[in-house]
Design a protein around this nucleic acid. Structure first.
Lengths: 140, 140
DNA sequence: ACTTGATCTAGACCTCGCTCTAGATCGTAG
DNA sequence: CTACGATCTAGAGCGAGGTCTAGATCAAGT
C-alpha cells in the first residue's frame, strides 16, 4: 500500500525535468553535487524515481538559483536539511543572507533600469527630432 | 591648446579602473573585444590615455553588464555607435529589448524574494515554537 | 523477437567573463 | 644612474554551471 502509493506517485527523470524546467542532465548534475536532500530512489531497473518531495525541493532550488544563489550555498542548505532538526538557526541565516542579496540585486537592477529608460528616451527623442546631436557619437 | 586640453584631461588605465570599478585587466579585455566606441589614444610611450568620453561610455557599459547584458550585445551596441548616425532605431531596439529583460528579471527576483521571505518565516516560527515539524525534513 | 525511445554511467567538453602570467618597457622619484 | 611601480602584449588559465557523448540497458508497443 505504502509501496504502491510511493510507486504511483513517483516520477521519472523526464517528468521531473518537465515539471521543474531543469534538463535531465542538470537533474543528474544536481544529484551528483549533493543538492538533493535524500538519495533518489531507483526502480528495479535502476531508473531514478522522484517523489513529490523531491520535486518540491527542486522547485525551491530553481527559485534560489534563479535569484543567484550559488550551487555551493544550495549544497550547504541541503546538507543542513539532511542533518535533520537542530540547525534551523543556520538555515535561517543562510536564507536571510540570500534575501538581503536579492534585495540589493533588485535595487541595483532598478537603478540600471532607470539609466536604460533614460537612454531609450534620448534615442526616441533623437529619432523624433530627426537626427539632432549624437551624444556618444565619435563622428560628432 | 586642443592637444593640451586632451592631454590634461586624459586618464591612465589605472585611473579609469578606479573610476569605473573595472580592473585594468577587464579594461584591456573590453578594448580587445571591441566594446569601446573609438580606438583608445596612446601616449608617446604607448600607454593608453582615456578621455572622459571613454569613461562615460564605460560607466554605461558597467551598468548594462550589471543588469545582465551579455558582452556580445555590448559589442553590437558599440558597433552601432561607431558606425555613426543613421541607426538610432536599432540602438533603441537593442536597449529597449534589454530593458524588458531587466523588468522580467526584477519581477522574477521579487517572486523569489517572497518565496524566500515565506521560507524564512517558516524557520523563524519553527525556532520560536521550539522544533515543531520539519517541513522538508526527510527524518520526519 | 524487434524496434524505438527513455534512461543509465563516467567523464570529456563548452561558454562566459574575466584573471593572471611572463617578460619587456615606460616614467618618475631619489 | 638606479629603483621601482605602472603599463605594455600575447596568450594561458580559471571558476561557475551546466551540456554533451559514448556505449550500454531498460521498457513498451507491434
Amino acid at each position: 500500500m505504502t509501496t504502491d502509493d510511493a510507486a504511483a506517485r513517483s516520477l521519472s527523470i523526464g517528468e521531473v525535468a518537465e515539471q521543474t524546467g531543469l534538463s535531465v542532465h542538470a537533474l543528474r548534475f544536481y544529484e551528483r553535487e549533493g543538492l538533493l536532500v535524500g538519495p533518489v530512489r531507483r526502480s528495479s531497473g535502476g531508473r531514478r524515481r522522484y517523489t513529490s518531495f523531491d520535486v518540491d525541493w527542486l522547485l525551491i532550488c530553481v527559485k534560489l538559483r534563479a535569484s543567484g544563489m550559488p550551487i555551493a550555498d544550495l549544497q550547504r542548505f541541503a546538507e543542513l536539511v539532511r542533518q535533520g532538526p537542530g540547525n534551523e538557526a543556520e538555515r535561517l541565516r543562510l536564507l536571510d543572507a540570500h534575501r538581503l542579496r536579492v534585495d540589493a540585486q533588485i535595487e541595483a537592477l532598478e537603478e540600471c533600469r532607470s539609466v536604460i529608460a533614460w537612454k531609450v528616451g534620448v534615442y526616441a527623442e533623437h529619432l523624433a527630432d530627426g537626427e539632432a546631436g549624437g551624444l556618444w557619437d565619435p563622428t560628432v
